[in-house]
Design a protein around this nucleic acid. Sequence first.
DNA 1: GTGTACTTTGGAAGCGCTTGCAGCTGTGAG
DNA 2: CTCACAGCTGCAAGCGCTTCCAAAGTACAC
Lengths: 343, 343
Amino acid sequence: MPGIKDVAERAGLSIATVSRALSGKGNVSPRSRERAQTAAAELGFVLSYHASSLASGRNHNVGVVVPSVHRWFFSSVVEGVSATLLDAGYDLTLYNVSEGPDRRHSVLNDFLLRKRVDAVIAVSLELSEAEIQQLLAIHRPIVGIGGPLPGASTIRINDSGIAEAATNHLLRLGHTRIAHMTGDASYQQDFRLPGTRQGGFEKAMASAGVAVRPEWQVSADFTIQGAYASARQLLGGASERPTAVFAASDEMAIGTILAARDFGLRIPYDLSVIGIDGHELGEVFGLTTIDQDARGQGALAVRLLLAGLENAADGGATDTEFPTKFVVRSSTSVPPADVGPKC
Amino acid sequence: MPGIKDVAERAGLSIATVSRALSGKGNVSPRSRERAQTAAAELGFVLSYHASSLASGRNHNVGVVVPSVHRWFFSSVVEGVSATLLDAGYDLTLYNVSEGPDRRHSVLNDFLLRKRVDAVIAVSLELSEAEIQQLLAIHRPIVGIGGPLPGASTIRINDSGIAEAATNHLLRLGHTRIAHMTGDASYQQDFRLPGTRQGGFEKAMASAGVAVRPEWQVSADFTIQGAYASARQLLGGASERPTAVFAASDEMAIGTILAARDFGLRIPYDLSVIGIDGHELGEVFGLTTIDQDARGQGALAVRLLLAGLENAADGGATDTEFPTKFVVRSSTSVPPADVGPKC
DNA sequence: GTGTACTTTGGAAGCGCTTGCAGCTGTGAG
DNA sequence: CTCACAGCTGCAAGCGCTTCCAAAGTACAC
């Protein structure tokens, strides 16, 4: 494998000049730059990543910690992060911690601390106080997406607000028998948002003076199949049925729609369903939802980081609220007319 | 930030001994090891990744190139790869090239060549001859999953064989009016398997002496929503309807089922549907499918790589056929009785 | 022609580790 | 008691770059 020395010899320049020519930093005459680049190309030379990093202290590498690349929100964020990072010439080191807290722990300890990343993006991670301290202790920019990360910069949507908006949408249509499917925190500890969204739901219900019925508060694991199972319980019970369901994610809303169909319920005539996310599948189901641009959040996170890295102006922790968009499709409408108090 | 020197001082040992103690290589007395570890822990010291890599030539880092982490198969593979890699103490550098050929090109040129990965795993990549040569030229182990990669080791399922098996399943049930939904290669160039699966379909049909009807050969982009649109065309047309659909992926099978439901078709009485994948959603839809354990494929790829890296026994390119499992659920049955020649 | 300021270049000192080599110690065999 | 050998340890030479520094070259004004 050719080294920078070989390039220097071939180009008739010093190592130092070649280094400057190839990295674009420092003053190099156009002629020298040209020669260095030609020589490098001819030899098929590329700078050694590790040597550069060691010498310069910069890695051009960002660590991304996600609960699971297999789920919609996370893989969407990763796509946004990846594209933006690659454009900027950065590598993305992926830490998928879907196996649970132990994995998360070892990633933090054994990997992130090894100075190999310039910055880290933590997606929806629910970290302990100690873990946050560890992260902050490496003195690298950190941005959290979709999860609280005290001390670090964060990007988040107004979870409580959009839950309120979604609920109000149903209330305004005339629904009073509204169920809420929330995220199942016990399934995976990396989440706080189920609570936040639930809070918004309850707030809206309270403002409208509508009672929250405990039997209509169900939960699932954020997947279609999990929600499907929960919704079968909710809708198939012998007891009274809600006329609307607010699901804390689009995937759960879709699971609910599928379950409703199994029972012959027509959407939206018999049951209105609203979700949160902006999932690609929403269109197929005519799902009314609140679109959070997950890719956009990932891209923004990278831009924030890079700005911080390049200006070296630490700037401190910022908290950015990412805008969302209400998308009304055909899964919500006025409640069925024949629904009185147990007619 | 503490360096190994600080640890050495604190432990009263030489740098060399500390290095050996912490890396576990070479002979170190239990006492020295103990001291080194204590000192390191006290200082919160971790080895610098780049310095280690530079000095030793080993990176403990594997590059993974995927067409898109957003799709089921790829994110499943990545999960399997990630878990296995993390267990082995390796980092995973993710190259998501969903933006197209240009991105793929720049990743190969600007990133992979920079000696920063010990090995690369290429998932379902359709590379040009030149790109393959580039990859091989870095003299690192490469394994390809789910795509041909001449010259490198590959893991693949018997695409043609399982397509045949799926088709035969339908044929044996008595279907003769069978449609095939294939992958849409034009959408993304990274795929050759649509053709292979289609080949298996055609072979089975030919063996059974059943005609392949061109109007029942449709394609979609491997997603549920894409398949839904295609299936609406297929099933909603005024012309004759197939009694069974073999979709080249579970997501497309699900899209087909959703479209069928729109037309009031009952699965499997009016329409049988079979897919390939083993998607988590299959259960919700009672989907008959051929399960390819994508996570398992990812894990296997890593084991192959690591075995190669650690034995340094290059071994040459191997081609591993990964086993699949036929899963019969409730989306396939005998064709409707009343289907004669246009009754 | 001389001085000043700026651009361009090369030498060389690291960046923080790993590892070959040699010396040193302690053990058991002869 | 001596020798061979094995286990430990430290020295020091890199790994392949970046970048500080000083020297050399260039341009322009005086």
